[in-house]
Simulated scan of single mutants.
Amino acid sequence: MDIVLIAKALSNETRLHILTWLKEPEKYFPPQEMYIPEGESFDCGVCVGSITEKAGISQSTISSYLEMMRRAGLLESGRYGKWTYYRRKEDFIQQLGDYIKQEL
């Protein structure tokens, strides 16, 4: 666990909003299954385009934010055709909470 990389990823208000939105994607985004091929599944995943629209900033900025959070371990991604979906890595976020509680 790279706590410095995680802290950097969490040090931006929009990135924090994205983590909040992805905690309950059905509350913040329209249904996302339309671009996932039949027979495939990426439960709770949200397309980059939907996140971009919700955040109201450029797709390139959102993509860099999402990639930073993925590298930090907070998110995971799935690609279906030209569409990339992201979701929270709940097990990692739980471990992070435990680490903060015990170590900091």
Rank of each mutant, 00 (worst) to 15 (best):
M1D: 02
M1T: 01
D2C: 06
D2V: 01
I3F: 07
I6F: 01
A7Q: 06
A7G: 10
K8D: 13
A9W: 01
A9F: 03
L10S: 05
L10C: 10
L10A: 09
S11L: 04
N12L: 10
E13P: 09
T14G: 09
R15A: 05
L16R: 15
L16F: 14
H17D: 15
L19T: 04
L19W: 00
T20S: 14
W21M: 04
W21G: 06
W21S: 11
K23E: 07
K23M: 10
K23I: 02
E24P: 01
P25T: 10
P25G: 02
P25E: 03
E26D: 09
K27Y: 15
K27A: 15
Y28K: 02
F29M: 02
P30D: 05
P31G: 03
P31R: 10
Q32E: 10
Q32M: 07
E33M: 10
E33A: 15
E33T: 15
E33S: 15
M34I: 14
I36L: 12
I36S: 09
P37Y: 08
P37G: 10
E38K: 14
E38H: 09
E38I: 12
E38S: 09
G39T: 09
E40A: 11
E40L: 08
E40I: 03
S41T: 15
S41V: 13
F42Y: 11
F42G: 12
D43Q: 03
D43N: 13
C44E: 14
C44Q: 04
G45F: 03
V46Y: 12
C47G: 07
C47I: 11
C47Y: 02
G49Y: 03
I51E: 06
I51V: 11
T52D: 07
T52C: 05
T52S: 03
T52M: 11
E53D: 08
E53N: 05
K54R: 10
K54S: 06
A55G: 02
A55S: 13
G56K: 03
G56N: 06
I57H: 07
I57Y: 08
Q59C: 15
Q59P: 00
S60V: 12
T61L: 12
T61H: 09
I62M: 05
I62K: 04
S63K: 10
Y65N: 03
Y65C: 02
Y65A: 07
L66K: 02
E67A: 05
E67G: 02
E67H: 04
M68D: 12
R70Y: 05
R70F: 02
R71Q: 14
R71Y: 11
R71C: 10
R71I: 09
G73N: 02
G73Q: 04
G73K: 04
L74D: 01
E76G: 07
S77F: 04
S77C: 08
S77T: 10
G78S: 13
R79T: 12
R79K: 11
G81W: 00
K82R: 14
K82A: 14
W83F: 15
W83A: 15
T84A: 12
T84L: 09
Y85D: 12
Y86S: 13
R87C: 03
R87D: 12
R88E: 04
R88K: 01
K89F: 00
E90W: 03
D91E: 08
F92H: 06
F92E: 13
I93M: 10
I93G: 01
Q94T: 08
Q95K: 04
L96A: 06
L96P: 00
G97M: 03
I100L: 15
I100V: 14
I100E: 10
I100R: 03
Q102P: 02
Q102H: 09
L104Q: 08
